[in-house]
Design a protein around this nucleic acid. Structure first.
Lengths: 196, 196, 196, 196
DNA sequence: AATTAATCGAGACGGTACGTCGGGTCTTTAC
DNA sequence: GTAAAGACCCGACGTACCGTCTCGATTAATT
């Protein structure tokens, strides 16, 4: 059908694939991004070094694959009854993601690496990780009439207004308590209304 | 005067110091942060390798020193007549800083590295680079009565609300045009009023 | 007939066998022994890698098989009318073999590898490649009474006296012209007479 | 005087140099040439890997340096009173060298590698290791009138006649006892006289 | 004809050495 | 005592080959 070789030769080992993805998650927590090398990823996964290189070019690619799907699930917040509560729910999920989740730690590491390596910037550009969580919230706000339809456009600033403050605090090492989160949600709602 | 040897032996070479700081700026632009090594910093500066290590422990420290003073000057925006125009002036300066200035590139690189290396996170925490630019704006808003006095507190979210959206867009590679900047300024003003 | 499975299942592919032996010869000429790997032997032969390993354990074994029979034929020199001319004929064949023949190149490579790997030394010891060519010459000299009967014994030095000089020159990269060959033949005859 | 930088920077460590040469000798005996890698040479010598590569390109170069001087000393046999006894002394030294000496083992390994790698063949061609031992013997024979003066020429076959048989036996794993050595000496003397 | 079993080409698997590069330290001479 | 030069030991890089394994597909002799 598609490829030239549908099933010639030994098939890829699913065991090795998941072992690598798990190893990356573990190492990010245990030793941090900088000390995480292709060598010890392979060792931690109990996998040959070449097997890692065969499927991923860099540790950023592995981390990205390990991050994306988890991010989608963890950022899918409960819809609220009002726009403000909807936003509050999302910001709570986002704060949790950024400060606690392994996938969030991977995202922060990747966003950091993207500042050093254009290839990683391109990689991150392929999936709008936080936008995928934020856009449903914005769409519901548009549907309620609380936000102009331009706010969910491709390059709209609405996503940045929504997630930017929390991301900035996460990257600078600040933590955000529940009270501040509610304040931020109210402020963001006000801000977004102004963008409509 | 004070310690055992205040000025015995050859004094530190000012020539070497500025050569290193300039070399770091040049290399960040020419080859990027990742490809910038202590070795080629020393070579570009025409300086011995040990001379670099004698005064800075890591390339992040050099970059930080090269970045801070420029940042202070470049982020000192013109006070506007109203809070909204004041904020607009600041956001314009911030956008310029993040997207164009060498010091801004250094800041982004350092913020990225801080996600990988706790020591760099601590280093960045010693000077609130963007906050130093944002706080005068917020203070003037408080003075005008447009913002509650709590907004300029130590750990207040106001700074994050002000700079977060633009920082997020800069880190994810998005550019922000003048029109969007004005929208953001208006939205931020609204948002901040809500925090008061 | 004999073992558990005399001829059940698919029989060994003769096509694959000769393809491998030819590939080894070609590669030895094209890229040399060191750059000749089991991987590119299989590729050059258009054969699976496992198929090579199924029948030969090392590239030395393949080369040995490819070498032995050719060596026997190429070293079977024309008997001369006198011992000196007999020896001269043999030395001419030997010089040709060592310097020009693919089988000779294989022999030199194997003799070289035997210095690094005891298993190859054992392998080479199973067939006295040059001795098989030299012994008929020596036997005829014994029959003529030009040489004592001990010279064709198992561990006699006569073979070494006969082939050693040319082998040494071949291994050290020296070439030997026709005039020198005749001198060597006369000298060897003299030398062998002395061993009787 | 000579080079552009007579003594700038840290000087080469003599300790490291001899440690590497000794490590190579030890490893050749302990594990053999094939299993002797640049990696374990460095480890055995207690030296960084880069330090090895800084001064030698291949393990063959190291072995060559470790071999040459020892070879000169070990092959410098006692002059005998007659040409036959002179040759006998040399052949005894040569047999000892080839079968027992570490330097001889190195020589055999290098001669083997030269069959696989043209660069090693060139390297070996720079110093006529065995010839340096054999030529004095031949020269004395010429002086005695037992050998024509052409025998000590650049490309003369006399050296090969002298050392070839023993080298061939050494490379093929044969050992040569004292009785055979004396026979070989007498035969070689006869053979060389014929070359005069 | 159907079954059985060893072969075939292909290619992924876990390992390990390669030669290079950057890390941070040290040891020289020159200033 | 700093500066410039450069060698030191260390370890990760990405590549290549090792020898083994697991596939689907052949290919004959045996049922």
């Amino acid at each position: 059908m598609t490829a030239g070789s549908p099933s010639v030769g030994r098939p890829r080992s699913e065991r090795a694939r998941v072992a690598v993805l798990h190893a990356v998650d573990d190492l990010l927590v245990d030793v941090g991004y900088a000390a995480m090398t292709m060598k010890n990823i392979a060792e931690r996964a109990g996998v040959g070094r070449q097997t890692v290189y065969r499927w991923w070019a860099t540790k950023a690619e592995i981390l990205f694959e390990a991050c994306v799907e988890d991010a989608g699930r963890e950022l899918a917040s409960e819809p609220g009854t009002t726009t403000v509560s909807d936003i509050a729910n999302f910001l709570a999920a986002l704060a949790e993601f950024l400060s606690t989740s392994p996938a969030g730690a991977a995202y922060r590491a990747l966003l950091g690496e993207a500042q050093h390596d254009p290839a990683v910037a391109v990689l991150l550009g392929t999936v709008d990780v936080l936008g995928l969580g934020a856009r449903p919230v914005l769409q519901r706000a548009v549907d309620r009439g609380d936000l102009g339809p331009g706010a969910v456009g491709e390059d709209a600033v609405a996503v940045a207004v929504l997630v930017g403050p929390l991301v900035y605090r996460a990257l600078t090492g600040a933590t955000t308590d529940a009270v501040s989160l509610d304040e931020l949600a109210a402020a963001a709602a006000e801000s977004l209304r102004r963008l409509g």
